[in-house]
Amino acid sequence: MRWYRWLAVVPAIGMLGGVPFANRVRPYVLGLPFLLFWVTAWVVLTSAIMWLIYALDRARERNAAGDRR
């Protein structure tokens, strides 16, 4: 059971589900209006989450290969 793969839906929910609430100018973060900061932050988080899933998949595949031996 690869439950952690469900993490992949987090970016979609966070990025898009958050839009109605993040739809504001203030506070500025890193000079960006808040809405732009919000979607930009989720772009970075998407990469981080996909990396986590990839790392867990790899670890699992290594374990599976180890068991067979």
Binding site: R5, A8, P11, A12, M15, L16, N23, P33, L35, L36, V39, T40, W42, V43, T46, I49, M50, I53, Y54
Partner: peptide, 20 residues
Amino acid sequence: GAPAFYILCYGTLAYGMSYF
């Protein structure tokens, strides 16, 4: 203005989907 930000979002989500 802000509606242009959609361009930043759709590719990102598509890449996530591409993993599977």
